[in-house]
Every structure is written in C-alpha cells, then in structure tokens.
C-alpha cells in the first residue's frame, strides 16, 4: 500500500521530528503548569464572592472559553503588534494556551470546590482554623482529588492543541511534519507518524494520571 521508499524518507527525518516533539513537550508542560495555576486562581476568585474579582473572573472565562484558540493565537501574535507589543512566537503560543485552558480548568476546579460539602468548611472553622487554613488543609486536597479525571482531559487537550502553535511559526511537531512532508511530497506516512507521536505522549500522560490517582487515594477508600 505505502511504498517502503516513503517510510525510508520518514525514518531519515526522525531526528528533525524529535526536535519538534521536544518543542511540543516543552511548550505543553509549561502551558499545563501555567493553566493549572491560572485556573486555580480564577476558581478561587469566583468561590469567594468578592464582587470585583468575581466579575473579572467571569468576563475572563466568558471570553477565553467563548472564542477559538486559533483566533486568540492570531490576535496575540499578529494583532498585538499594532499596540507595539511584539511577542515572540513561543511566548505568544504559551500565553495563548495558558489563558485559553486556564478558563476551562477554572471551571473544573470551581465545580470540584463547590462539591465539597459546606459542613466541611463549618467543621474546620469550628476547630478554630482560619478560612485559608480550611481551604488549604481540608477543602483543596479533597477538591483536587475529585478534579483529576476532568483536569487530565484538559491537560491532554493542551498537548494536542499545542499543534495550533504551528500557525504562528513555532517549530513544534506538527509544523516540522508539515515542512518535511511537503518538501518530500510524502504525506500519509508522515501523518501516521505524527499521530503516533502524539498518541505515545498522551499514553505517557495517562501513566502519570494513574500514578497520581493511586497516590492521592484515601487509604481504604473507594476513590
């Protein structure tokens, strides 16, 4: 079906694809860390009903969840130059991914936080703990545990969506494959290889999730 000659070409360029994969991993991991931090901050802004913070958080989530990532990246990279803000490709992609997925993750955390029974807060307070202490020691550990499966969905999405950074010239995996395949006029083998690269990375992320869920399991508990 697919000529051996074509696979030889793919194999010859594997090191270039490897470089692209490193950029993808680097970009995605930084974006995941940033998006989790932004998500947590925004979720807390909405939980503690302080009017102005709540409003800012709501507008933020509404915009970044309400517009396509591709559009956000184009605005960050090409649009902001009219305001003399000249972001390099990599930072522009990183900021775009963090802001976009931070909005989704904030909703995941918010859902998890409100699912913790109000009695837990009251019990903590009645033991003389401050609000921050209750949050830190009682509510957050439970909420984070609950949020892991949906959080991981989102983190996997970050890894795959980082391929959009190719549009703003970041030399990540997808861009490298596009360059190689169009130069060699070889397509299907490259696209299959590209899919396998992403799949393997996501499988590795799945292992981390399993490990984390096991580690955070309540001893003797069911989840």
């Amino acid at each position: 079906m697919l000529a051996n000659r074509e696979w030889d070409i793919v194999i010859a360029s594997l090191s270039v694809l490897g470089e692209g994969a490193m950029v993808t991993i680097y970009l995605s991991v930084l974006a995941m860390l940033g998006a989790v931090m932004v998500g947590l901050l925004v979720a807390l802004m909405r939980i503690f009903k302080i009017r102005i913070f709540e409003l800012i958080a709501k507008v933020y989530v509404s915009f970044f969840r309400g517009t396509p990532l591709l559009v956000q990246l184009l605005i960050l990279y090409f649009g902001l130059t009219s305001f003399h803000i000249m972001l390099e490709p990599f930072p522009a992609a990183l900021i775009g991914l963090i802001l976009h997925f931070g909005a989704y993750i904030s909703e995941i955390f918010r859902g998890a936080l409100v699912s913790i029974h109000i009695g837990q807060w009251e019990a903590g307070r009645s033991l003389g703990m401050s609000t921050m202490q209750v949050l830190q020691k009682i509510v957050l550990p439970q909420a984070l545990r609950i949020s892991i499966p949906s959080l991981w969905n989102c983190l996997i999405d970050i890894l795959k969506s980082s391929s959009l950074a190719s549009v703003i010239t970041v030399p990540e995996l997808t861009r490298q494959v596009e360059e190689q395949s169009s130069a060699q006029f070889v397509f299907m083998p490259y696209f299959l290889t590209l899919a396998v690269f992403y799949w393997v990375m996501v499988i590795a992320m799945g292992w981390v999730q399993e490990w984390l869920e096991k580690k955070l399991m309540i001893p003797g508990g069911s989840s």
Partner: peptide, 14 residues
C-alpha cells in the same frame, strides 16, 4: 513558507 519546493523548503536535516 518553507513548504514550497523547490523554491523554499526544509531538507531532511531541517
């Protein structure tokens, strides 16, 4: 573009 041979393209070394 870097994707339009033989005018502008990446070789196998990138």
């Amino acid at each position: 573009e870097g994707t339009y041979p033989p005018f502008t393209f990446k070789n196998e070394k990138g």
